[in-house]
Design a protein around this nucleic acid. Structure first.
Lengths: 223, 223
DNA sequence: TGATGAACATACTACCGGGTATGTTGTCAA
DNA sequence: TTGACAACATACCCGGTAGTATGTTCATCA
């Protein structure tokens, strides 16, 4: 679960801040708030209240509200990327690679729904034209990060088309339609209390099946 | 274009407000602002500035900012609904009806991109839990309006499946995936300057093709 | 053991934005 | 021509919010 790095002090006598888990606590609470009310409607006090703390704690770790948001953005992208990373260079035909990464991506959308929605809003904010010019730079960097992620899918479906397993016209339009379908659960999926793993994967399979057929995939996909 | 109702004065001597086109001017300007920055980040002064006016004009026609938003919501839904209404009871097989309404819906998403995004945000706002309890009532009404619209698609693809033209498992999941794909252009489509009608319909065709195959439609769809 | 700084909490400021109260102007009806 | 009202503009209030300045506590280290 946790990344598992502690390292309170180094061998040198230099003080090393431990606060990393306090920081991620803030990030997760902020993610909850940002998802529930959106960035603009969320106040820093809201995040502090959810933590049972005050603004002082947040501003000790983040210089501004915008930086708090981009922090959540980056954290979310890291989680999403980490899920797909093990399979992005999987050998074999591109279709099989697509099936794998599309599935783990969709499951991740449901499992990390909160972070995924913040990432979504971050991309939207960038497309609009975010707050300050300096903030635009940070957002642009993160959006590039996100674009690099979607490029994995873009290249994969292009290759699969070359190999005769997919069939579509314009790549840009198709990859957008595909991503919207795969991302859809972040808008309507609501995690249940006693939920089986099979329930989540069952939903993901149907979504991936929809996208698979949409891309022109033939036959059934066995996941 | 315009609804074409004037009726400045009745036969009775009673004064009848004419302001309907001024009202729609406000609605359209508000739609622009809400789309560009989102509801929370848009101030009433922003909308007034875009109109070259002041708050007084807006508050003369709308009791609150929330009512202004719901006004745009309703206006947008009217436009969207009006596009598919002529075809929703088209005779013949359900697949053909789906092809028609899916296509006009997607084209409308691009043509009325601004209004469509406000509708989108309105649904999101309702899912979150909007501002005041009284405002929730208005939003709930509009969301029901919107759900009635999506039910048209839901019933159509169900019927098409019964007729053997579509093939999918869970209706709820599938209709969500389909809608996300059809709505996708409201997030990435940007209207060009000298844009041909064929360009827009060409994009729409590809999106509808993606959804058609995703739903398990066989063969090519000729639009 | 005292000094130092991290990790917060508290108190405060400046400003923005929703809403209101009040003026001003043009138009139509009687 | 005059009253009345729609259709705005102006001026103002006030609550909320981002950000800051200043304590306070506790662990660590020389």
């Amino acid at each position: 679960m946790a990344e598992g790095e502690d390292m309170a002090t180094t061998t040198l006598g230099v003080r090393e801040p431990v606060a990393d888990d306090s920081r991620t606590d803030i990030l997760l609470a902020a993610a909850d708030c940002f998802m529930e009310r959106g960035y603009a409607a969320t106040s820093v006090d809201d995040v502090a209240r959810r933590l049972g703390a005050t603004k002082g704690r947040i501003y000790h770790h983040f210089p501004s509200k915008a930086d708090l948001f981009t922090g959540v953005f980056r954290h979310g992208m890291d989680r999403i990327y980490a899920a797909v990373e093990p399979y992005r260079n999987m050998p074999g035909p591109a279709v099989e690679r697509w099936k794998k990464i599309a599935f783990v991506h969709t499951v991740r959308m449901m499992r990390s729904k909160t972070l995924a929605r913040v990432v979504w809003e971050g991309v939207e904010m960038h497309l609009r034209g975010a707050t300050t010019p300096e903030q635009r730079v940070v957002l642009a960097d993160l959006v590039q990060y996100r674009n690099g992620y979607s490029d994995i899918f873009r290249r994969t479906i292009s290759q699969a088309r070359d190999e005769g397993d997919f069939d579509f016209d314009d790549v840009a339009i198709t990859v957008q339609s595909m991503f919207m379908a795969l991302n859809s659960p972040i808008f309507w999926y609501v995690p249940r209390d006693g939920e089986t793993e099979e329930h989540v994967t069952g939903i993901a399979k149907q979504i991936v099946t929809f996208a698979y057929r949409g891309l022109g995939g033939k036959g059934e996909l066995n996941l």
